[in-house]
């Protein structure tokens, strides 16, 4: 069974970068897929990768990560205010543990998430 946890941006909005990364990584380490409203900053994405690498062990193999953004950023007055008020809330981020998510294929408009087959050992 695959568990997907939706996280509104308000849940990470007031956290520090370290706090945001910790929160997201802990969910992934708990074998759940996170659907985050919005996105992390570019530097936070790199820090998330760093933190992931520090925690890799025999049970946790890393993460699959994908960010989908609005098709085109609006320019002009409207775009300025959209960015001002929504900013990092735009788009969607998917983070899943590599032991559950085989790969995430993305193109600008959609995300395809391929999960791994979970083999259960037969009880004798």
């Amino acid at each position: 069974m695959v568990t997907i946890q939706f996280m509104p941006y308000t849940e990470i909005e007031d956290l520090t970068s370290v706090g945001r990364i910790r929160k997201l990584l802990n969910i992934a380490k708990d074998n759940k897929i996170v659907l985050l409203q919005g996105r992390l900053k570019a530097e936070e994405e790199a820090e998330l990768i760093q933190a992931t690498m520090e925690e890799i062990n025999k049970d946790f193999k890393g993460i699959e990560l994908a960010v989908i953004e609005p098709k085109e950023k609006e320019g002009g007055f409207k775009g300025f205010f959209t960015n001002l008020f929504l900013g990092d809330r735009l788009g969607m981020t998917v983070i899943g543990p590599a032991t559950v998510v085989k790969s995430i294929k993305r193109n600008p408009n959609k995300i395809e998430l391929l999960t791994k087959e979970i083999r259960k050992r037969k009880k004798r």
């Binding site: 570019a42 994405e45 990768i49 995430i104 294929k105 993305r106 600008p108």
Partner: peptide
């Protein structure tokens, strides 16, 4: 390979930042 991988996007995003 598919260029739309998040690693590519994260690297380029960090360089731009």
């Amino acid at each position: 390979r598919d260029p739309y991988s998040q690693v590519n996007i994260t690297i380029l995003g960090n360089l731009a930042a």
